[in-house]
Structure formats: C-alpha cells, structure tokens
C-alpha cells in the first residue's frame, strides 16, 4: 500500500472513532430524555414521544454504526422500503382499530 493511502486511512479511522463516540453520546442522551419524559407521566403523549425518540435512536444506529450513511443511494432507498411497508401495515391495522 502506498504511504499516501495509509495516511488517508489513518485519518478516516480517526474521524470514524470520533463519529462513533459522538453517536454513542447521542444515544445515551436520547435514553436519558426517554427516562425523563417517563417521569413526567404525560399519558398517551408520553408514548408518542418515546416512540419518536426510539426511532431517532434506531436512525443513529443505522446511519453510523451500520454505515448506512456511507452506502449508495440504492441501498439507502432499499432500507426505506421496509420502513414504508411497516408504516403502511400499521396504518391499515389502525383503520380497523380506530373505526371499530
């Protein structure tokens, strides 16, 4: 491997470590917020907030730890497919639950 390439990889790894630490800190912060919101006893709104925070945490894991950020547009859109599907399935189920 040429010296220039090795140097570039070292820089990328260093940046990568920093990114992982920041992503981890973000997950810890979001967990703290979830716990904090639970103590406020907000009822249904609390559940909604918890779900939004959980989705954000899943997004952080996917983007940084599972490297979705660095993947091609195609793979990123493939990831969106099950998200859309899950949304549609839950939506259709709730058409029943809400109007029953």
């Amino acid at each position: 491997m040429n010296p220039g390439k090795t140097e570039q990889l070292k820089t990328e790894n260093k940046n990568g470590e920093m990114t992982y630490i920041l992503a981890w800190a973000m997950l810890v912060a979001l967990t703290a917020i979830t716990v904090g919101v639970y103590t406020l006893h907000l009822g249904t709104a609390g559940v909604a907030i918890a779900l939004v925070i959980a989705s954000l945490k899943a997004g952080v894991i996917l983007l940084f730890f599972m490297h979705l950020r660095q993947e091609s547009r195609f793979l990123q859109s493939v990831f969106l497919l099950p998200v859309f599907l899950l949304g549609a399935i839950i939506g259709l189920t709730f058409i029943d639950v809400w109007y029953r």
Binding site: L85, A88, I89, L92, I95, D96, V97, Y99, R100
Partner: peptide
C-alpha cells in the same frame, strides 16, 4: 399483495371502514 390481508377477516368484527378499504 401486502395490503390486502383484511379480506380474510370480513366477518371477524373488523371495522366497516377497514372492510371497504381492504
């Protein structure tokens, strides 16, 4: 095919709106 499953459940007690949609 993912969005038609409700037609197996027309007599299950599912809501009317859901039955029409499915």
């Amino acid at each position: 095919g993912y969005f038609v499953w409700g037609h197996h459940m027309f007599t299950s007690g599912m809501s009317d709106v859901a039955r029409v949609v499915f």
